[in-house]
Amino acid sequence: MLVAIIIIIILGVISGYFIIPTSSLEYLDLISTISLSILLLGVGIDIGRNKEVIADLKRLGFKIMLVPTLIAIGSIAGAILFGILIKLPVNESSAIAAGFGWYSLSAVILTKTYSTDIGALAFLSNVFRELFALVLIPLLAKIGTKLTVIAPGGATTMDTTLPLITKSVNDAEIAIIAFVSGAVLSAFVPILVPLLI
């Protein structure tokens, strides 16, 4: 998926650089507005469909909500602090962090509603987050932590990093918590990113 996404962006960059005249940017804006509503409608349908997650939440108790909430707070606070070091305004660093590793959605929302360079930064930063997660998950499991293994993946613990988590920590309960946490964080992304920017 990441490969397909990168190829499409590169195709866009090449066409933007060489082919598409800046005068057609108006059409581009219209296309991206329509695409964004379609995309978010689809994201919403996905969220509403996750009755399984809602059932898991009820069964495990809403205490489990602490896991994605703490991951959200830690991700945003950490990015704000590190953002200050590179002189990034708080609204930008916090909104980028609220992508929680879901690079495609956070990047397109920020490109569309805020600015191209912050959209590009959100894309790169959230791709790196997933890469760091792939390295850290087995490491954190090795030093004997369990819940903490869920933290670096952010929203990706419901899909792309879930197999690695279940392989690294041999505990069915952790797998379910990771899935629920990833689903909740994924639902936070389209709400928090526009809110924070």
Binding site: S15, F18, I20, S104, A107, T111, T116, F123
Partner: peptide, 10 residues
Amino acid sequence: LLFTMGVKIG
């Protein structure tokens, strides 16, 4: 959207 993002970057 990713394509238009690329176009805007390029």
